[in-house]
């Protein structure tokens, strides 16, 4: 393939992030669905995105070979339930171990337009291989008389590695529904992220925080719908490993599915599927390992149901956490 244009490289990078996130997300869904037929369908769709990812990676590799200046992008970024890493192993560049792909602020939208029904922020995806992936799928708020799905697929994930990098993600936040606007709000806000740190001879620290997915200020009187119902926030772990001086990893997944409170006269599902999980892992050789800390909390909280408002409130808030420390 001849040299790519700058725009083409950016598009390829963006699309790779999209595909890797889809693969990851579908992996999560495959484990969640109850219908075997749907599970099989999602597996097929996931494989389709995996093929797309591999195809695009090949294009990048071919282009990099043509230029001779860029290393090879690893095609092994995605597995079920794992966050994607874009990794560039330093082909022609000295010390180029990382590909810095900051894909922040993807899918943001200041707000839908009056009289324009549609999907807003529906697939905001932000990911980065280094540093921060933040603020995807955010939406300041729907507009009166604009039915739709708002902030439904906000996904943000990030991975970081090396010394002292951290990644965090926040997705699917939504300021609040508007009177007269039925719909699904913040339903699929999903945040995942991981950070890993590894080093030889010194310390590596990885941190991870996935927070604030699917939050919703509150439903509005006269607006039936599903509010903040299905927002999982999870993270596979602050992982830290290396030799030397005491590594620590922590992961925190918090604040999914929170909802200030239902409103009288607004039947619906409130904060029902807030799910938070996270784990931290820490290991070290040669010195002490501090231990991973992983608070996973504040899921599915709800200020309280309101008299005369039937529904499910905070029904499925789930928190799990795991931490492990391995002093040498």
């Amino acid at each position: 393939m001849p040299n790519l244009t700058q725009k083409e490289v950016m598009d390829l990078s963006d699309q790779l992030h999209v595909e890797s996130t889809m693969i990851e997300k579908l992996g999560t869904y495959i484990n969640q669905v109850t219908d075997p037929q749907l599970r099989a369908l999602l597996q097929d769709v996931q494989q389709s995105h995996q093929r797309s990812y591999d195809t695009l990676v090949n294009q990048v590799n071919m282009a990099s070979q043509a230029t001779g200046s860029i290393g090879q992008m690893a095609a092994s970024s995605v597995g079920q339930g794992q966050a994607g890493i874009s990794q560039n192993r330093g082909g022609g560049s000295v010390g180029g171990g990382y590909m810095m792909a900051g894909g922040n602020m993807g899918g943001n939208l200041p707000g839908p337009i009056p009289g324009v029904p549609g999907i807003y922020g529906g697939s905001g995806i932000s990911s980065s291989g280094y540093g921060m992936g933040s603020g995807s799928g955010n939406l300041s708020g729907p507009i009166p008389s604009v039915p739709g799905i708002y902030g439904s697929s906000g996904i943000s994930h990030s991975g970081s590695f090396g010394m002292g990098q951290s990644g965090y993600g926040m997705g699917g936040n939504l300021a609040g529904p508007i009177p007269g606007v039925p719909g699904i709000y913040g339903s699929g806000g999903q945040t995942s992220g991981f950070g890993s740190g590894s080093s030889s001879g010194f310390s590596g620290m990885g941190s991870w925080m996935g927070s604030g997915s699917g939050n919703l200020v509150g439903p509005i009187p006269g607006v039936p719908g599903m509010y903040g119902s299905g927002s999982p926030g999870f993270g596979q772990g602050g992982v830290s490993g290396g030799f030397g001086m005491g590594q620590s990893g922590y992961g925190m997944g918090s604040g999914s599915g929170n909802l200030a409170g239902p409103i009288p006269g607004v039947p619906g599902i409130y904060g029902s599927g807030g799910q938070t999980s996270g784990f931290g892992f820490s290991g070290s050789s040669g010195m002490s390992g501090m231990g991973g800390v992983s608070p996973g909390g504040v899921s599915g909280h709800l200020a309280g149901p309101i008299p005369g408002v039937p529904g499910i409130y905070g029904g499925g808030g789930q928190t799990s956490s795991f931490n492990q420390g391995r002093p040498y």
Binding site: D14, Y29, L38, S153, S229, G273, G316
Partner: peptide, 29 residues
């Protein structure tokens, strides 16, 4: 919208809606 009895996770329908929206978005991109 019917409540999901297993409400600690997304319902199959919500997952379908999200997947469909994602596919629509990706086709446009």
């Amino acid at each position: 919208m019917r409540p999901n009895p297993n409400s600690n996770r997304l319902s199959d329908k919500a997952i379908c809606i999200d997947c469909l929206n994602n596919e629509k978005y990706i086709t446009s991109v």
